[in-house]
């Protein structure tokens, strides 16, 4: 594999990693606050549909992004109501959200666009209907300025704005969690809500805040899928990314920087599946394409089954908070 091919695969890996990263950080906020969320998948899917649909209807991708975030938030609030206010089972609520999103998106898409449960391609709605790649300054000139220049031109430049936002979210998440008052309280409420309650801070308020942040980030993940990575919504387009993000979250032991590396790893595996020729040349064995396609999911199962070290989730995770002495 030559250097350019490697850079091209890495470039694709970054694109694939971004929706995972948004969803993974979304899960991180929620689970750090003690609310397990297996509804990441559903929220992404709903956000993907609404962002594409609204972008198609208005011709403005930013309004589409807001609509996606709104849809994801609405599902987050449902999850919050079920698991915080009514102290229901968080797993069941998450499963319900996944089903709801899978069915509802296709149904509304068919009703609005009559194209068999998908949105029309956003390319037909003008240049502002999807997130376009940004060419960073001097990227074209750097193309021939040695390997570093090539890295700049091929890998760093040429992504949509959400990719850069996604990477910025990592240090931001770290800072919020470990260097702010809000972060301290958020982590505490996921470990021992009684400690937060007796310290005079609202457990319910903190958990809703965390769930809302989760909604925003999932919305961005979904919007990127439909308006950045692809140009429009198709049925079940999140294709398990919400669950892969959960696996990445466990792999990352609920830490932001580890989450970045975990998501890049999954992104890389997904990117390799697109270039079986390059992989075959590298390992010198004939690998079936389906195996490469399945690799991220196999890794997900391996991680979720607990084969990769011991991951200790937040201690109060999954448990509704009930006051007691």
């Amino acid at each position: 594999m030559d250097f350019l091919t490697f850079l091209q695969i890495s470039d694709t890996a970054v694109r694939f990693a971004i929706p995972l990263l948004f969803a993974c950080l979304a899960g991180l906020f929620s689970e750090r606050a003690g609310i397990f969320d297996i509804g990441l998948e559903g929220k992404m899917l709903a956000a993907a549909f609404f962002s594409a649909a609204i972008a198609a209807l208005t011709g403005n991708v930013w309004i589409g992004l807001l609509a996606g975030i709104g849809a994801s938030m609405a599902l987050s609030i449902i999850h919050g109501l079920a698991s915080i206010t009514f102290r229901g089972n968080q797993l069941i609520s998450g499963v319900a959200i996944n089903f709801l999103a899978a069915g509802l998106t296709v149904l509304i898409a068919q009703d609005w666009f009559r194209q068999g449960g998908r949105t029309p391609s956003l390319s037909d709605f003008g240049p502002n209907a999807r997130f376009n790649s940004i060419t960073l300054p001097y990227a074209d000139q750097m193309q021939d300025a040695g390997p570093l220049g090539l890295v700049y031109a091929e890998l760093i430049s040429g992504h949509s704005i959400l990719v850069y936002v996604g990477f910025l979210m990592v240090p931001l998440t770290w800072y919020i969690l470990f260097r702010t008052r809000f972060g301290l309280r958020l982590r505490a409420v996921g470990e021992n809500p009684a400690a937060v309650d007796t310290a005079g801070v609202s457990v319910v308020g903190l958990r809703y805040a965390a769930v809302a942040i989760c909604g925003i980030l999932c919305g961005m993940a979904g919007a990127y899928l439909a308006t950045g990575l692809q140009a429009g919504f198709v049925k079940d387009m999140s294709s398990g990314r919400g669950f892969i993000a959960l696996a990445a979250l466990i792999f990352a032991k609920w830490r932001p920087w580890y989450a970045l590396w975990a998501c890049l790893l999954f992104g890389f595996l997904q990117a390799m599946a697109l270039r079986p020729d390059a992989v075959e040349r590298l390992v010198q064995i004939d690998i079936p394409g389906q195996l490469l396609d399945a690799l991220p999911y196999i890794l997900t199962v391996v991680i979720l089954a607990g084969f990769v070290g011991k991951a200790i989730p937040p201690r109060a995770g999954g448990e509704p908070y009930v006051k007691e002495r």
Partner: peptide
């Protein structure tokens, strides 16, 4: 102030973090 029979402490936080939890001054922690 109340010291409960079952302590209300966050096990994997430091003593310092437990003391300031809920009584922080300002948004930044340090």
């Amino acid at each position: 102030g109340m010291v409960f029979q079952h302590f209300k402490l966050v096990e994997n936080f430091t003593v310092l973090e437990n003391v300031v939890l809920g009584a922080e001054e300002g948004g930044r922690l340090m």
